[in-house]
Design a protein around this nucleic acid. Structure first.
Lengths: 340, 340
DNA sequence: GTGAAAGCGCTAACAG
DNA sequence: CTGTTAGCGCTTTCAC
């Protein structure tokens, strides 16, 4: 157990008040140089570190920011998760906040998650959740400042990547390169909520593609299990790709990079050349740093570290009692690779 | 601000003591069913959540575990970091601990890191650091339970992957496949401390290779900058690879997977086929899940999630005041891929 | 069966 | 310039 304020005070023969004031630089003008130095010296000698718990009890600020996500751990390996967490860490560090990482509670244990989050230790929370999760309502009923990222949650100010703009860029890119029939690979979970990032990507792509005179067929990217971290080719997709020239899609857009990567691998297996036979584009840009002979994916780079930095900034403003916009869209840009 | 114990007590017209006892299930035999139910109901209604700070102040347990690493953020993208963090998260969750993620302090700001860590909130800390960093001594002078991972730190109980065993397996694997001359790609930072994982890998490989009659030449994998996340071919390496058959190394072992991936990419660029002209092996196994047409690297899979789980377990034992072994080695195994 | 009182380490209001 | 007092929310000892 580290030294307490009282011990430091005892050592220099002053009261806790004085020591507290001096140590926080609050009494810089009230106390003589000599006193301040004695206090500082004693604190250093005893390796005094203020007890954050006690300080909070008094002051109502913990300087802790939390991040909660309900997404499973299967995806914890991927670059997206890594970018988000690393970004949060940096953003917190820049603001001298401690960073508490929540998550990995099974669905039934919403209570545990809620209890952990609410046990009075956080100044604010950044969440990555689906808008319909029950926990959302519970958190919203609270006075805890919360900011959502990646998917919009109507209850909270949300910071998202430019999903619609990105999709439009992709559609335009493909149209410009002469594609007329394109396959769109959607996420396995059906979802119709415009809040959700993948829905925005999907709809915006479909609309822009139509506008540009491309026809769009759709398929579902089915994640088989948490262990087998890979998406097979569906029979629907196999069907489309087996159609004769003139009917076969010449391009495929995928809701995220991972689905795109898997599609490319599956194509190669069955002798479909990418991009010659099928152009493939993704969405994310997270894995652009994979350092090897892998094909460079044509994709939208969403700047996740910027998303979390912005989210943290908004959170701070909320903590300070200020108004913030309910939806903030962080620009994304197209990265032309080898696959389309 | 959530409801306090006192408010719950006021609501049911009982004392805080009673409420506290009931809510923690401590008075299950002393209080009648009716009382307990009234308390529970009131707590639920007010959405009472115990204040962890206050509880700690009294009880000296925060149920928070920290993770600190001093490694830069350039590598934050990589699978290693991601596995460690996700593993810590799961391990903490399993033990109902909160997980605080430290790191990203510039070297000069050791004080900030130390202050953050020591502000009296952690039950224990897992660190990923180099043994000679100044912060090590400061933490060691403390009564805070600390466990090191990946690299051994003599001051703390350490949990590491089987670096030596892994390297021996790789040497044996290459020898069995007929290689006689092999290049070992070491990490840029020179280091001689046997505590350090990459030193163990290097030495064990060199020794086992010699024992098996292979000759070993060495080169340095120079990371050019934090931004350019890639390792070029050095002139030394280019020289080795340009030597005539019979002198040229036929295999390259790299201190980690990343260095191996980059080497492979560089080889392809200059027309050296992998594995035909040069067999390449790595060490880590973190990126085995990259889902695309990328070459599957032959490497040692170090089970990092197991490492962190073990570390967390030891930490708990230390927190509970028990003795723990100073060095724990978690088994690793060879994964045969396409590159050797 | 239940409650009063003390104290964890800190800060803020108010005296001197 | 410095100290006293009170209290943040909780648990624990002891008394009723």
């Amino acid at each position: 157990m580290p030294a307490s304020l009282k011990e430091v005070a005892a050592k220099v023969g002053l009261s806790d008040t004085t020591v507290s004031l001096v140590l926080r630089g609050k009494g810089d003008h009230r106390f003589p140089q000599a006193t301040r130095e004695r206090v500082l010296a004693a604190a250093r000698e005893l390796d005094y570190q203020p007890n954050a718990g006690a300080r909070y009890l008094r002051g109502q600020r913990t300087n802790m920011i939390g991040f909660f996500t309900s997404v499973g751990l299967a995806t914890a390996h991927d670059a997206f998760f890594s970018e988000i967490v690393a970004g949060m860490r940096v953003a917190c560090s820049e603001r001298s906040k401690k960073f508490v990482l929540f998550g990995h509670y099974s669905q039934e244990r919403d209570d545990d998650a809620y209890a952990d989050i609410m046990s009075g230790q956080l100044d604010g929370l950044v969440v990555l959740m689906q808008p319909h999760e029950p926990l959302v309502k519970r958190l919203a009923a609270t006075s805890l400042p919360v900011v959502a990222i990646a998917d919009v949650i109507p209850e909270f100010p949300s910071v998202v990547a430019d999903d619609r703009g990105g999709s439009r860029m992709l559609a335009e890119y493909l149209a410009q390169r002469g594609h007329r029939r394109v396959l769109y690979r959607v996420h396995a979970e059906n979802e119709t909520d415009e809040c959700v990032s993948r829905v925005r990507r999907h709809r915006a792509f479909r609309e822009e593609a139509s506008r540009l005179g491309m026809s769009v067929v759709e398929s579902v990217a089915q994640y088989p299990s948490a262990e087998e971290y890979y998406i097979q080719l569906s029979s629907v997709e196999a069907g489309y790709l087996a159609e004769p020239d003139g009917q076969r899609p010449t391009a495929a857009a995928c809701w995220d990079d991972f689905a795109a990567r898997c599609l490319i691998a599956e194509c190669r297996k069955i002798g479909i050349r990418v991009p010659e036979d099928l152009a493939v584009v993704g969405f994310d840009g997270c894995d652009s740093r994979i350092p090897d002979d892998a094909t460079r994916l044509t994709t939208i780079r969403a700047d996740w570290s910027n998303v979390v930095r912005t989210a943290t900034e908004l959170l701070q403003r909320m903590i300070d009692g200020n108004e913030v916009p309910m939806e903030t869209i962080v620009p994304a840009h197209l990265v032309a690779g080898d696959t389309a």
